[in-house]
Design a protein around this nucleic acid. Structure first.
Lengths: 217, 217
DNA sequence: ATTCATATAGAAACAGTGTTTCAATATGTC
DNA sequence: GACATATTGAAACACTGTTTCTATATGAAT
């Protein structure tokens, strides 16, 4: 359970500049480039992340980035993975609840907060912000890890007989899809304003949780 | 109730070529360009639609397209609007059902079919395939029109006391978001295969409809 | 009909993108 | 210290959306 140094939570303080850390094949340089890309993304959105801008910020030729990441997709993947860690952290920050149902509702609220606080990451992870990037095995696993906390709780609720289903993953995906639908329609400009979106979100969350939980009030 | 000549249902027969229809400011030329763009999109996806490729297919300079549509966004908007008509047609093709609940389930199935048969359009409309395009007033209204059939049915169900809500639009959006969530996660590569996605979709559809309908079996 | 103002035509250029090339240089190893 | 290897860093390539800009055609007025 590494606590993952929470890279993206604070803004643009650059850790290292290129010529100082030209220890090639070095993980430090890799991380420095990822952080440069993330900083551009947080400030101006995913579409502003170009290899040239990242290289400029690093004061290095673009070739360095290609040597370390292969392609823009490779860099996008790193931002994706970083987003997964941030989402996991967001879930971890939710205080445990005795009532599993209430716990799930709180996690649902945390997911909304994540989409608000880390919109760019959200768009990279689930909004297809980098069209050249499609999640492959490792990335899918990273999402699985981020959602693991939710999966565990749903599994527990099942074992305690609170939930009318047999497959935890299916339930997780149903809850996820329902919430993602609202968020993504909102971010895509299909819902007028945030207030309306939040009302929808809360109802979607309540409905989908209620669907699976047996009456236990 | 114009029946909207169903432009995109058949594939690549070009109606007119550029020099023959250089009747500028002409609607025919506009439609011919839109059809050229749509044909490229259907064959190779939205990312393959570039101004140059469209111009090449039309055998005209790119300037003509800029004169008629202003920008790529302008062309994207036309594809968006065309998609809205196709979605409306898809809904219209669903045979009426006496049971409102059953009718809604059928419309839900039609929405799934639309996302499968017109994936490129779906991605343009709801997937942000053209990142430069964000739906403005007219486009939002076009979606509203496409979803009107669903809205009417939900309104009817409310008036007949079948639904536990007061705002039809809210219910439509909740159903829509729930279904869009599954489709978009699937198209984004977050759900392994189509079969799994379809199982999820059917459950999401059933759940969200059941949520609003009072017990009436 | 002829002139004149306007607006297109159509190629070429501009600014940006991801990516690759390639000689110069540094690196690591024997 | 010498040689094979790998990295540098600028420049080029192939593409994108978009804008110039001159020659040409168009439409209106005399």
């Amino acid at each position: 359970m590494q606590h993952s140094s929470d890279i993206a939570s604070e803004s643009n303080h650059q850790v290292t500049t290129y010529p100082n850390v030209k220890l090639q094949h070095n993980e430090l340089l890799r991380r420095s480039i990822i952080e440069a890309a993330a900083s551009i993304m947080r400030e101006s959105g995913p579409e502003a992340v170009t290899i040239r801008k990242v290289a400029e910020k690093m004061e290095c030729p673009t070739k360095v980035i290609y040597n370390l990441f292969g392609s823009k997709e490779g860099l996008a993947k790193e931002l994706f993975l970083e987003g997964c860690k941030l989402l996991a952290n967001t879930f971890r920050a939710v205080p445990e609840q005795a009532e599993l149902k209430q716990y799930l509702l709180e996690l649902g609220q945390a997911y909304w907060r994540f989409s608000k606080d880390y919109t760019s990451y959200y768009m990279v992870m689930f909004g297809g912000a980098f069209s050249e990037f499609k999640p492959e095995e490792e990335s899918l696993q990273a999402i699985g890890t981020a959602l693991q906390q939710v999966t565990v709780i749903i599994s527990n609720a099942m074992e305690e007989g609170f939930i009318n289903e047999e497959d935890p993953l299916l339930v997780v995906n149903l809850v996820w899809a329902s919430l993602h639908g609202v968020i993504h329609l909102y971010l895509g400009g299909h819902i007028q304003n945030e207030e309306t979106a939040k009302v929808l979100y809360d109802k979607a969350l309540l409905n989908v949780i209620r669907t699976f939980f047996r009456d236990n009030r």
